[in-house]
């Protein structure tokens, strides 16, 4: 009984699938799907390397500090770093006192309550606080940015394919819309309020170029702050915010794999040993 029923069921599925296939193929031939500007002009992130790449990668702390400076002086005006606490910055090589000063002098204060009146108030940051967001909430953020929401950057480097390179490419990828694109897709003209960037998924980005000119940030360590350098530094910094335990992970991984390798070789020898003389 099972097999005749199975046979009929199988025929049924195969028939419907082939019917779907033929219908789809006919539609595809008679009405090929229109090409889109995103499909043709979107670019994969540029090739760029960071000190943290690879299984032995470590952070370049000088670079992270520079990247933090770029975040603080440029990005933090609109983008939050919700998952990162001031105390985490000690990882970048700042001392306790420096972290405390950074927290205290942060442009946005930490929301709190007035202890006398209970009214909403703000207070100075402490190392234990998460880095305060520039806007009180999403509505405020949208209202200040032409209805576009500047996303939180804490995890950006993991929330995009090839995140570090993506951020770098996006920051250095602003350009005029190619004439080629407008010729083929006249409807795809970038609206006046948006900015063309081929590294962004739909090509048109609400954020104006944040790193506009060389020297926008004056680096404490004297590194020349070209747009390219600033973009690279802030990307490295955001790789750190997304995966602060990366170095620990790499170091632990090497130790664990070394141990496992020896243990597995021993297990293999032991296995051969026990089976010695037993044909199988």
């Amino acid at each position: 009984m099972v097999r005749p029923i199975a046979f009929l069921a199988g025929l049924g599925f195969v028939f419907v699938l082939l019917f779907s296939l033929v219908t789809g193929a006919v539609a595809y031939i008679s009405e090929p799907p229109a090409k889109t500007a995103e499909h043709e002009f979107h670019l994969h992130p540029k090739e760029v390397s960071f000190a943290s790449d690879g299984p032995l990668g470590k952070f370049d702390r000088q670079q992270l500090q520079r990247g933090f400076q770029v975040y603080k002086e440029v990005c933090s005006a609109c983008h939050s770093l919700h998952q990162v606490a001031f105390r985490d910055l000690k990882d970048l090589g700042f001392t306790d006192a420096e972290v405390k000063a950074i927290a205290k002098n942060w442009a946005t204060e930490v929301p709190s309550i007035n202890p006398e009146t209970g009214e909403p108030a703000t207070r100075k940051g402490t190392p234990a606080d998460k880095i305060p967001a520039p806007y009180a909430n999403e509505v405020a953020a949208r209202a200040a940015n032409n209805n576009a929401l500047p996303p939180d950057l804490s995890l950006m480097a993991k929330a995009r394919h090839d995140g570090g390179a993506y951020i770098y490419s996006l920051l250095t990828g602003y350009q005029d819309q190619p004439a080629e694109l407008l010729k083929h897709f006249p409807d795809a003209k970038t609206p006046a309020s948006l900015h063309y960037n081929p590294y962004f998924a739909n090509l048109n980005l609400a954020m104006p170029p944040p790193l506009a000119a060389d020297g926008q940030v004056t680096y404490a360590d004297g590194t020349k702050s070209t747009v390219d350098q600033m973009a690279k530094d802030v990307s490295a910094f955001l790789i750190w915010t997304a995966e602060p335990k990366l170095e620990k992970r790499h170091a632990t991984g090497i130790a664990v794999l070394g141990f496992l390798l020896i243990a597995t070789i021993l297990a293999y020898l032991s296995y051969r040993n026990i089976w010695a003389g037993i044909k199988h």
Binding site: K158, R160, R249, L261, N273
Partner: peptide, 30 residues
Amino acid sequence: TAKDGFGLGVFLILYCAVLFFAPNAMGHPD
């Protein structure tokens, strides 16, 4: 048990290689 012990070792090597060096390779960025 000896043969499975060896198999477990190989399994753990592959698993830990991904865990420590490409932990997000099988996940989705979104």
